[in-house]
Each structure stands twice: as C-alpha cells, then as structure tokens.
C-alpha cells in the first residue's frame, strides 16, 4: 500500500542510487549489528526503527508503511515481541523494525532494554518516534531521550485527527525547532500525512549531516561538571562515539546495560565512523 505513494522529489534520485543495483549497500553497515539483535537478514538499503509510547498508534503506522510485507517474532533471547517489515520509496528499499512501546529508555523493563539496545547499538539509519498528539507531554520524554542518543530522528505526530476532535492543536513548526528534527503530523488510521512522513524518512536516511545528539542541560552544577568530566573520558577512550554525554550520564546513574557495553567493548563499535551511505 505504501510502495506506490507519490514521490515528492525528496527521495534519493535514481542517478545517485540506482535502484536494485546497489549490491554493496544491500547489507548496510547497521544490518550486521541489527542481525545480532535478532533482525532478519535481507536486501535493503536503509534500516528504520519505529519507537514510541504504548497506545500511540505505533502499530497502525507500522501497518500503514509496510502493508502486508511484515512478519513477527521475538527479539533474540528475549520474550519481547518483534515485528519487522519492508517498504520501498523513491527506488530505495527500507527495512522497518517495530520496537516495543515504552515510555522511556531508562532500562526499568525488558522492553526498554530492547528498545535502548537497538537504538544505541543497532544504529538505525532513521528512528521514527510515533507520538500521540493528544498527550504530547507524556510522549516527549521518550523523544528527548532518543534525541540524546541520535540526531537521525523523525517525529510522527500521530492521532492528529483525534487531537482535532479534542480541540487540541500542536504547533509542528515550533516543535521542529525545539527538537531539531522533522516533525510530521499524521493520522495513520486514515493514511493522512504518510507521504510527508515517507519523504522525511528518506531525507533523514540519506543525509550525510544529521543533527547532533541533543544536549540537555541539568540545572545542577555538580552534576554538569561530573557529566562533562566523564563524557571527555568516554570520548578519549572511544573516539567518535556520537553520544558521549548520554553515555556518561547513564554511567553516572549506574546503568548496568551501558556498564556491560563498556566492559565488553560493544561501545567501541559505535566509535567506528559510519561507512559511506
């Protein structure tokens, strides 16, 4: 259903990336890492991760994007359900992975661990965060946490139809400025806003210069000093880690998953520069 949607010209032009002839990018760099997390192998150019709170219509967005091209399973070694599917847009093949619905990435449940691992270690080319327009405040903490990890984010402001019924309007331009990433209003149940969402995904997937991860300032001088101090050491140890401040903060909080990534050196893999996209 999504495949033949009109191409609004933002996607990669055929001259730059001949469709189907991209043998080298069939296995994008992130795919090997994602395969380790349980992603099915296959031919695709870009990996999109779909994140969001529970009850935001995330699976409706997923279904609208993939149509019938999807299958479900479990995350490797976890009991958390995993759905993935594919779609193509502008001659480019995308693999989309539906992450478990979570409120945060603070590692208080298996779902949060899975989502965090995929976002941090899988390094998807685009993270689509589905948020509920009627409960923006409840949804933004997750967006902010994901923004601290990566700048390759598109926010799908979903359920705008419901928001309209409730007399709620969201200023997407203001939100785009605040978050530093594209915000697209959608009503996935009515297929509203999907062409714009696809265009935004394509644009983020192909950009060589994504926004920097978000720096949140903590209004506590001692904490700020400690974060800056530790972030510098993280960067010295793992040069090129794109989100050293976030890693430092998690280490200060004693996040067991991140400590393990430091010990095993998984974190070091993040330091390798992205291979040419």
């Amino acid at each position: 259903m999504a495949a033949p949607l009109p191409t609004p010209g933002v996607g990669p032009s055929p001259e730059q990336e001949p469709a189907g002839a991209c043998a080298s990018c069939a296995l994008a760099p992130s795919s090997a890492r994602l395969a380790r997390l349980g992603l099915a192998p296959g031919r695709y150019d870009h990996v999109v991760a779909l994140a969001g709170n529970p009850n935001t219509g995330k699976s409706t967005v997923f279904n609208a994007l993939t149509g019938l091209r999807q299958h479900v399973g479990n995350w490797a070694g976890k009991t958390v359900a995993r759905a993935e599917g594919g779609f193509s847009y502008g001659g480019t093949a995308y693999r989309i992975v539906d992450l478990p619905g979570t409120y945060s990435l603070l590692s208080t449940s298996t779902d949060e661990d899975v989502a965090r691992d995929v976002l941090l270690f899988g390094r998807p080319d685009v993270v689509v965060v589905v948020v509920d327009a009627t409960r923006l405040e409840r949804n933004l903490p997750l967006v902010l946490q994901i923004r601290q990890i990566t700048g390759r984010v598109v926010v799908a402001l979903n359920l705008v139809d419901e928001a309209r019924r409730h007399g709620i309007t969201v200023d997407t331009r203001h939100l785009t400025r605040e978050l530093g990433v594209p915000v697209v209003a959608t009503a996935a149940r009515r297929n509203e806003g999907l062409p714009e969402l696809l265009a935004a995904i394509a644009q983020v997937a192909t950009t060589d210069d994504p926004p920097k991860p978000l720096r949140l300032i903590h209004h506590d001088p001692a904490l700020e000093r400690a974060v800056a101090d530790l972030a510098a050491q993280v960067e010295a140890r793992f040069p090129g880690v794109p989100n050293s401040r976030w890693v430092a903060l998690r280490l200060l909080e004693g996040d067991a998953g991140i400590e393990e990534a430091v010990r095993s050196g998984t974190l070091g893999e993040l330091a390798t520069p992205r291979e040419a996209a």
Partner: peptide, 11 residues
C-alpha cells in the same frame, strides 16, 4: 527509583 519513574512516565 522505579515506582517514581513509572508515575512520572504517566505524567
């Protein structure tokens, strides 16, 4: 801890 976070998750 966790209980506090859950309530904050809920707004």
């Amino acid at each position: 801890g966790g209980e506090r976070r859950r309530l904050m998750d809920l707004g």
